[in-house]
């Protein structure tokens, strides 16, 4: 199988990203967005939205139940709308429950997915990230590569100090170097396992 080499050049349309360094959410979103671009910018990689689509479908259904309940209750005020309200309220909370389970057990922090096709096989790449508990400056990145039945999952940790300068501007070069290193590492691992 041909070996993928990972590009570390920035995508052409990338602007400088500046964040509030002490706001973890902003930091994480900046790194995630940039890492997603890295993945999708690789030759032959096709962005895959299936996990995100799943979340959107579940939330849409939940919101539709609530909209229907509100609309029906508006047209047929309360005692009359009782049955519809019961059904909608119950299903709304069921779907919110499903959404919670979905984000914590299926998505598990996944923010980017991509497929790489070669020799009529498909490699599925998944990036998931989180903040390291008790070491709040550490960005933890899980890379999962699925190739047929083989699943390689590796976790990488790095202080965010490497990725942001003093002003809080994202140093994309450093991030992409690391990502490229990580991905190559995962790929080597995969090839060691043999076919």
């Amino acid at each position: 199988m041909s070996k993928i080499s990972f590009k570390t050049e920035l995508p052409e349309d990338s602007n400088e990203t500046v964040v509030e360094k002490w706001d973890w959410n902003a930091v994480k979103n900046a790194l995630d967005d940039s890492a997603r671009k890295f993945l999708n910018n690789q030759n032959g990689f096709q962005e895959d939205h299936s996990l995100m689509n799943g979340r959107l479908i579940v939330s849409t259904v939940a919101v539709l139940f609530s909209l229907y309940a509100i609309g029906y209750d508006y047209l047929h005020p309360f005692p009359e709308s009782r049955l519809v309200l019961i059904v909608c309220v119950v299903f709304y909370f069921i779907f919110i429950g499903i959404l919670t389970l979905y984000t914590s057990f299926v998505e598990k922090g996944t923010f980017a997915e991509a497929n790489y096709k070669s020799d009529n096989k498909v490699q599925h790449w998944k990036f998931a990230s989180k903040q390291k508990p008790k070491e709040e400056n550490i960005y933890v990145l899980d890379i999962e590569l699925t190739d047929g039945k083989k699943v390689i999952k590796k976790t990488f940790e790095q202080s965010i100090a490497r990725y942001f300068d003093e002003k809080g501007a994202l140093v994309t070069k450093n991030l992409y170097q690391d990502l490229s290193k990580y991905c190559t590492n995962v790929l080597n691992e995969e090839q060691k396992k043999g076919n």
């Binding site: 609530s66 909209l67 309940a69 509100i70 309200l85 909608c88 309220v89």
Partner: peptide
């Protein structure tokens, strides 16, 4: 920086916050 899906989710998220409050209210009504 958001893409279309993220924007849509943002709107849904807003909808869910409002909906949760409303559904609790309607549930209490029942």
């Amino acid at each position: 920086r958001m893409n279309k899906r993220q924007m849509y989710y943002q709107i849904l998220n807003f909808g869910m916050i409002v909906s949760t409050a409303l559904m609790i209210w309607k549930g209490l009504m029942v």
